[in-house]
């Protein structure tokens, strides 16, 4: 839930999604859901010459389960807020 919320705050920012087949796609984050499926607009595939498959694709839906990393814009991530929220969520988990 915590990380889903973080992604929601990064809507309209440019991110780079690296998949588990080493494909990297840069684009504007349009939406994200609870499974961390990701919608990207205005996409660009890294090393386009080797990947002409997506030449005509302008925006895409990426299944959360195939994501290895997402590179985020550091200036738009409040790390203090994240750490506090993580501690709070951990405390709630322990109470259950």
């Amino acid at each position: 839930m915590l990380i889903f919320s973080l992604f929601k705050t990064l809507t309209d920012q440019t991110v780079t999604v690296e998949l588990k087949n080493d494909l990297s796609i840069t684009g504007v984050l349009k939406s994200v859901d609870q499974f961390l499926n990701i919608r990207l607009d205005n996409i660009k595939v890294l090393d386009e010459a080797r990947h002409p498959h997506m030449m005509a694709v302008k925006n895409c839906f990426i299944r959360g389960s195939v994501v290895r990393y997402v590179q985020l814009p550091a200036q738009h991530v409040d790390t203090q807020l994240l750490e506090d929220a993580t501690r709070r969520e951990a405390a709630n988990q322990a109470k259950r």
């Binding site: 998949l19 005509a56 694709v57 302008k58 925006n59 839906f61 990426i62 299944r63």
Partner: peptide, 19 residues
């Protein structure tokens, strides 16, 4: 099935037809 999907992309048809 959803679990077999990697990615779904919207095609720009004009651009695709030009290739």
């Amino acid at each position: 099935k959803g679990d077999q999907i990697l990615l779904i992309g919207e095609m720009d048809e004009a651009q695709d037809n030009a290739v």
